[in-house]
Design a binder for these strands. Sequence first.
DNA 1: CAGAATCCTAACCGATACTG
DNA 2: CAGTATCGGTTAGGATTCTG
Lengths: 147, 147
Amino acid sequence: MSAGHTAVTTSGTTTDEPVIVCETPQDECGVRDVLDRLGDKWSVYVVVELASGVLRFKELQRRIHGGISQRMLTLTVRRLERDGLVKRTVYPTVPPQVEYELTDLGHSLTHLVKSLADWSIAHRPDIAAAREAYDGKAAQEEPAAAG
Amino acid sequence: MSAGHTAVTTSGTTTDEPVIVCETPQDECGVRDVLDRLGDKWSVYVVVELASGVLRFKELQRRIHGGISQRMLTLTVRRLERDGLVKRTVYPTVPPQVEYELTDLGHSLTHLVKSLADWSIAHRPDIAAAREAYDGKAAQEEPAAAG
DNA sequence: CAGAATCCTAACCGATACTG
DNA sequence: CAGTATCGGTTAGGATTCTG
């Protein structure tokens, strides 16, 4: 897609946040691209684990928090490979040995994931508080319908 | 994503809230938090649209390209509200008017989304190339099954 | 206009069994 | 060890209908 869109700087945003100008119909400035990659349950974890070095399939599976199924690891890692984020090396030994590692592209994503994690960690209390407040208020609202 | 593991703290304190037990030294801890929020199809778009200012329900819906359904917009916006990322203001008029805007927390996420978009835009060609290469190679590998 | 409720499909994902 | 193939449960998400 040629990103030939006009920048409609709507109005003066009072804060210093980046004004996201987006009027591409199908792919909101490409956010969908990366979200599709990060959106599934496991991709990020694979990237994170691979960030520290080369790993074999089984080892990768073991290290992923929460226990990814073999099937999902295969799918995830294949998708990542297809997108050029992960490099897969097969050694024709017996038993077979396959190593996974991040490509440069994959490594560049690591920073982003780190930011994501940082934000998440930093604001987790806020989110938790917001949820509690919301749920509490919602519970008040609810008629509770006793008996 | 599901509310999957109902956090079994080591002390045996079984709480209701999804406490993320994470003893991994890596920064993966907490990534799920934000990914759960951004992982669904629409949250990011809502945040993006709201980044530029206050919007009403219908207007928000119209601006999200690709056409979000009314149902999904409601769900998305509610979740965002619950997490303290979006503020919802109801004006008791006729017809009803509801305005959505980012909270400070939501605005802080905007930076991240921006980074996401930037990365995506910057590396889209790489990803596209990688895919083409991968698919091409995969096609070669395929037996082609001549009849 | 805003949204709640219902129905239904597709995709995601895990468990299992089989292959090389 | 490193997959592939298949089945079934769960969920995401769209379309439609109804209410205030």
